[in-house]
Design a protein around this nucleic acid. Sequence first.
DNA 1: TGTTGAACTTGTCACTGACAAGATTGGCAT
DNA 2: ATGCCAATCTTGTCAGTGACAAGTTCAACA
Lengths: 209, 209
Amino acid sequence: MTTPATDHASAPYHHGDLRALLVRVGRDMLERDGLRGFSLRALARAAGVSHAAPVHHFRNLSTLLAACAADGYRELSDALEAARAAEPEPRGTLGEMAAVYLHFAERHPVLFHLMFDRQSLAERTPEFGAEAHRAYELLCTAVRAAARPGDAAAFDQAVNTVWGLIHGMSVLSIEGQICRTSESAPDTATMLRAALHAVVRGHVDPPGR
Amino acid sequence: MTTPATDHASAPYHHGDLRALLVRVGRDMLERDGLRGFSLRALARAAGVSHAAPVHHFRNLSTLLAACAADGYRELSDALEAARAAEPEPRGTLGEMAAVYLHFAERHPVLFHLMFDRQSLAERTPEFGAEAHRAYELLCTAVRAAARPGDAAAFDQAVNTVWGLIHGMSVLSIEGQICRTSESAPDTATMLRAALHAVVRGHVDPPGR
DNA sequence: TGTTGAACTTGTCACTGACAAGATTGGCAT
DNA sequence: ATGCCAATCTTGTCAGTGACAAGTTCAACA
């Protein structure tokens, strides 16, 4: 059998870096066919290995899914970092991060859904926790920089509403639930930026009492 | 409630109303064990019928899941209607609806996740579409009443951000991701109400400022 | 009363996740 | 070099699953 041309490097044992290959092929399969048809054996077939080979890299299906989700968080975190680097001004950073978040969700809807499903990810790997935490910290830092300084309660309020808004609109976009009765309505990212402005302003003013 | 609409099928046949029983038991199993362990045969066992009995009520697993999700939307819509009846003042209605939405998500996290997963619900029943649309219309109406009159684009903006915010914070709450660095921070529902105020105000002001 | 057809059962098949045991292969002490 | 070792991968197997087919029960009705 011809060697599957996995270029050298990381840990080419028998097959090459099968673990990375499985995550890559797994993410492709997830996006193409969704979660319900997802199968360890189908994945092994697609990767060109025997049906039990993945077990040596992932204890079970949940662990494999967690690895795919962790890979997604890594990609998202990298994109968030790039957004911050491209637009260092605090309010601008937050808007860019929101756009990046939304864009990630739209490009990887199934994975995005998986990343936020505690049930499917019952087996959380340390890798998953680390990458998820990294994305979270990036967002928190951006919120802290964008919002005027306040007490801890105000910060909690700001982080939760900002992340909630970004995440919620991303989900609606994925599900095709974004309302567009008007032709002149701006695109989803623009709507999200405008709403973020309102929320960030709103959290410093006493809420309407 | 009322008797099912289908006259000829409403009377208990061999087993009683197995369809309703399956949905009820199915929702219980979903919340207890999550989606991955979910199995038509396990459901049949739990309901005390043979492994193939559910097929006569649900073409396949997806259809059954869609029925459970539709049942969830029905429950949510009923709760939203009750919220509107209890608090007819427009801004108050919106806040109450948000609290109801959040509460529903927290009490039925797995089902809630399922209700917003286009992949798992590839087979959409008419029942599902109708109940989902009912919840959506309730929310739209409430937003229209609460926001100052504007053009269609402003309405789109308001609906999308309001629903996005409510949905996003509900997801964060389910996932245990609500940030609470301060003891004095209000509970999630209160944070959500405050953020809604900011968003509803923000959408009438020009966001450019 | 006998027929009909929906509701339900039993039986079966290919497929899946998980496990066990054997085979391959690179690294390493001797 | 030699030979052992352990990680990687394969083959084989088992119970459980979704889906389908064919048989059984039983309320409704002509």
